[in-house]
Design a protein around this nucleic acid. Structure first.
Lengths: 120, 120
DNA sequence: AAACAAGATTACCATATCGCCAGATAACGA
DNA sequence: TCGTTATCTGGCGATATGGTAATCTTGTTT
């Protein structure tokens, strides 16, 4: 047994740690970036493919990818003219899994509440 | 059995879903808010206590709490003059746990790399 | 009711971020 | 080398967000 009473999350975090954690969540706080990650979960692919699949502009996708790389969530390698992108941090899957399942619960809950409201 | 081949995270998400997920991560993307959550993990407490413990201004804490409430992560109840806040979504612990452990790994990794660089 | 205390809300400024256009780079092939 | 393709980068306008001070609300106490 450890000397701490509970898990790490119950400890008081330093300002630096808070900033680091916040910056990682911030990388996940934009729909376009989540879309890119979602696409990359299916399979690794080039920037061009991501541009085509995401519906966002090329410059925009490039910038968002840079942010995801900076956060260590996406990695890249060059293959000729193309830059192939891939998920570099397995945590992504877990995080999205968590959020998605939580969202699903919530929406079902709200749907139920709405239903109850409607049928007077 | 479902027709999907893997988990939910491998599915293509709709724009609405992406926005919802992003908004939840966005709520976690600020140091002050993470600090508040961290404080609330220890124990539920009043807004005033949070203001004192967080070092941020009252108006600021109030605003951040409103955002966390809106995201469904924090709940409140009135007790006389005070508003007692508490973690309303167990996902918080898991998320922070994940991020923290990941961060720890990364920092250790970087520390090791730095060490290797130093001792020529 | 008057004075008070705890929070919430509004107004405002400074900064950060998004999406896009245009120009800059880099890796290839002719 | 020149031209082409794939991607990156810098700059711009519009919007979003954080922090603070002042004000409004609400429940408490006398």
């Amino acid at each position: 047994m450890k000397t701490r009473k509970k898990a790490a999350s119950s400890k008081t975090l330093t300002p630096l740690a808070l900033e680091l954690i916040a910056s990682r969540f911030r990388a996940l706080s934009e729909p376009v970036r989540l879309r890119l990650l979602n696409l990359l979960m299916h399979k690794e692919q080039s920037v061009g493919a991501l541009v085509a699949a995401s519906g966002s502009g090329q410059a925009n996708v490039s910038k968002h990818l840079a942010i995801l790389k900076e956060a260590g969530m996406v990695g890249t390698r060059k293959e000729g003219l193309q830059t192939i992108c891939f998920i570099a941090d397995p945590i992504i899957n877990e995080l999205c899994e968590l959020m998605c399942s939580r969202l699903r619960e919530e929406m079902e809950h709200k749907a139920a509440a709405l239903k109850a409201t409607v049928k007077v």
